Computed example of a mutant assay.
Amino acid sequence: MNSNDSTATRYTVLAADSVHEVEIKRSRFITYLFRVESEADARDRIAALRKTHFDARHHCSAFILGADRMTQRSNDDGEPSGTAGIPMLDALAKRETPDGSPLSDILAVVVRYFGGIKLGAGGLVRAYSDSVSQALDAAALIPRQRLRIFTLAAPHALAPRYENDLRAAGYQMETTEWQAQSALLHVGIEDTPAAAAQLAEFIATLTSGAGTALPAATTWADLA
């Protein structure tokens, strides 16, 4: 499913890739968190880590993709079935985020260097789950919002003031097109009827009723 066709309007993503390591009974668990856009992207990252950590016993993984989180995959990579990939996936899927939106477009890979002490099934589940949870604790997360882009035609002389006032009011301003007869401002808002009505009211006041914002395409943007 394309993100623009999603029923969701907001979710959470990594602000930056990160790595976190813990040691449990002499085994090293190195958790890599990556922001990924597709299943192919996720698998390329996993393959690259296999080369980097060629001497590690396990490269377990889990990832979630899309605004609606329709794609979810996990892999135990040689650990007993259900003791690595699924606990990792659960840690991603159930993560509480600052604004309550679900976490997605994320890949977790836990590289394990075996330390000689077996952890047992329960111990492995806890180790892999905790490794991902601790990595998420240390990671920076940001919301990602689906925006509806509206266009507003403005006289050249008034466009800079309109743009400044819209930006000061908290609206997401995209690139302005300077055309022969006027400037075309592009304003991004949350893709909801309530937000559209609020924008229409603001623009009516801003332009003394002379301007009208027209809906255009949708896009996704990080709200840093």
Score class of each variant (00 low, 15 high):
residue 57 R to V: 14
residue 8 A to M: 09
residue 55 D to W: 03
residue 37 E to H: 14
residue 59 H to S: 02
residue 53 H to E: 14
residue 60 C to A: 12
residue 11 Y to V: 09
residue 43 R to H: 12
residue 62 A to Y: 13
residue 41 D to C: 03
residue 49 L to I: 03
residue 29 F to G: 04
residue 30 I to N: 08
residue 13 V to R: 11
residue 36 V to P: 03
residue 21 E to F: 04
residue 46 I to C: 11
residue 27 S to N: 07
residue 12 T to S: 01
residue 22 V to C: 09
residue 15 A to S: 12
residue 57 R to A: 15
residue 54 F to C: 05
residue 49 L to D: 12
residue 13 V to T: 10
residue 32 Y to L: 13
residue 31 T to N: 07
residue 50 R to K: 14
residue 23 E to T: 12
residue 35 R to K: 06
residue 11 Y to H: 15
residue 7 T to G: 08
residue 18 S to G: 11
residue 38 S to D: 08
residue 24 I to T: 00
residue 20 H to Y: 15
residue 28 R to M: 01
residue 43 R to A: 07
residue 17 D to M: 08
residue 7 T to H: 12
residue 61 S to H: 09
residue 59 H to A: 08
residue 21 E to W: 00
residue 15 A to F: 08
residue 33 L to I: 05
residue 9 T to P: 00
residue 61 S to F: 09
residue 7 T to K: 13
residue 34 F to K: 09
residue 9 T to L: 15
residue 48 A to G: 06
residue 36 V to S: 08
residue 57 R to I: 11
residue 50 R to E: 14
residue 41 D to M: 07
residue 8 A to C: 02
residue 11 Y to I: 07
residue 37 E to V: 04
residue 49 L to Q: 10
residue 29 F to Y: 09
residue 47 A to L: 12
residue 52 T to M: 11
residue 39 E to H: 03
residue 29 F to V: 03
residue 25 K to H: 13
residue 43 R to G: 00
residue 32 Y to H: 15
residue 13 V to K: 06
residue 20 H to E: 10
residue 43 R to S: 09
residue 21 E to I: 08
residue 23 E to W: 00
residue 34 F to G: 01
residue 48 A to C: 03
residue 50 R to P: 04
residue 62 A to P: 05
residue 9 T to I: 13
residue 15 A to W: 07
residue 63 F to I: 06
residue 34 F to C: 01
residue 61 S to C: 09
